[in-house]
Design a protein around this nucleic acid. Structure first.
Lengths: 207, 207
DNA sequence: ACCTGAACACCGTTCAAGT
DNA sequence: ACCTGAACACCGTTCAAGT
């Protein structure tokens, strides 16, 4: 007579997230998650094939909280894209320790697909044809993925910027670094996005 | 009487690269590198403080091969930026297994700073002021970092794109995915970069 | 079917010792 | 000063066994 499963995937993801919140990504291990749940380590393998699948559960659980509702159609297309992008950024930024996991498992995440759907729709509406839409969508994804990492791993306001500012043998770069304090994290992210959106808009008459 | 050091940092980096080329990034360990060199594992700790420092040696060794010579000033600024960006992409793409390491250690790499110097100079020449230059430079870096990862981890021509194309509940996204085969890897990368550069150009009169 | 515990083959790193 | 080997505190995962 089969015993009922004592766990759901969601409980597993919640336990893993609790471990990460307490001990950081480095603290995530099959043993730690098992202990968090109060089960033997090997018991986890009833629910996931391997550690990678556990990681996927965690990032899906987080990315599922991103609002995928299409923004109000009364707004211009580029504002609507900005809204969608900021929603993703907000969720990722509130779990900075997960950034490496999200990057690694992003392309297997259904949540990211659902988030991308309104983006594709908005780009179509803006007048981009199939080819242009592929390039615009991928470049937006590239920018978002890269910018979030820059923000988390090498922030403009961090120590690295000061190091660069002091490098006399790199005059242009260090001069630029000295202007970094004029730009907030938000201004940096939105400023770069605005540049990309302006470029995208230039290829349509919907600008 | 002190014995002379038997190793240079460069030999260490070369050995680590040999391990990675043979067994992948997962095969990289202090023990494996020590064996490659023919030294005890702990001997490595005469040369690096920890594994992270070994990784930094490897990525510096690779990124040092990027050509940082400023491109011919006769060309328009956006073409010169494209040349610089393609040089970095070419080097990184020829060591795809290193991509996660490069991402993680990028902000500590002197080679990346030297590569960024001509970029900052070109942007200044294009007429961008300090604030604009900060945002343009960071957005270029974000795009490059993100796009290289997309290219390596979730290529447009890969299986993931077909999965998306078959998702009927995401009509716009799957319709867009069906146009993916019209776009080569190079066209995708350069297309996105061109969009960003057009956006940057729009904020100057040098366009 | 669900869960456990021992065991295997690994890690990075500390520490005491050898030349 | 340079290098070694044993040991410590971890990993993910396989496998045989228990209920």
């Amino acid at each position: 007579m089969p015993r009922p499963r004592s766990l759901t995937s969601d409980q597993l993801a919640t336990a893993a997230l609790a471990v990460i919140d307490r001990d950081g990504l480095a603290g995530l291990s099959m043993r730690a998650v098992a202990q968090e749940i109060g089960m033997s380590t090997m018991g986890l393998y009833r629910y996931v094939d391997d550690r990678g699948e556990l990681e996927q559960l965690v990032i899906d659980r987080v990315l599922d909280t991103v609002d995928t509702m299409p923004p109000d159609k009364g707004r211009p297309w580029y504002e609507r894209i900005e809204i969608m992008v900021e929603r993703l950024r907000h969720v990722v930024s509130s779990h900075p320790w997960l950034v490496p996991l999200i990057i690694a498992h992003r392309h297997r995440s259904v949540a990211i697909m659902r988030w991308s759907e309104p983006l594709a729709a908005i780009l179509a509406e803006a007048g981009l044809d199939g080819r242009e839409r592929v390039i615009a969508l991928r470049s937006l994804l590239a920018y978002v993925v890269g910018a979030i990492q820059l923000e988390q791993l090498g922030p403009l306001a961090g120590a690295g910027t000061q190091v660069i500012a002091d490098r006399a043998e790199l005059p242009y770069l260090s001069e630029t670094a000295r202007h970094a304090h004029d730009v907030t994290t938000d201004e940096e992210f939105r400023g770069g996005l605005a540049l990309l959106l302006r470029g995208i808009g230039g290829s349509t008459d919907a600008r």
